[in-house]
Amino acid sequence: MKEFALIFRLNDIADFKPSPEQMQERMNWLAGIVAQNKLVDKGNTLLPTPGSAQTVKPGNVVTDGPFTEIKEFVVGFVVVRTADIDEAVALAKENPIFKIGGSIEVREVLKQA
């Protein structure tokens, strides 16, 4: 089995605070993965709001948030365990984030030998 990080991105900061229904949809999606025994890490939500997000760059440059330059910003991740990337992609496709124009990057986690 391999492990894949599913990295969630949004376009619009207004979509970050979900409605109770949206939260429930996400939870139901995640529960489906747990019920297949495929969730490795339920990960974290990363706050993109001012005061919670800064980017540090070379030359002692610190900018506010990730949103000034990058159009899509990361809002969180989870780690799943599947046989291959196709299966991980299939899990990602069921996520409700696409209803609000978000995207999911699927990346294999390098396992240290």
Binding site: Q24, M27, N28, L30, A31, V34, N37, V40, K42
Partner: peptide, 17 residues
């Protein structure tokens, strides 16, 4: 059912099931 989903996700901590 929704509450069940919530607790099922909470129950997942990477340890043995």
């Amino acid at each position: 059912i929704d509450r069940g989903n919530f607790h099922l996700v909470n129950a997942c901590n990477g340890e043995e099931a």
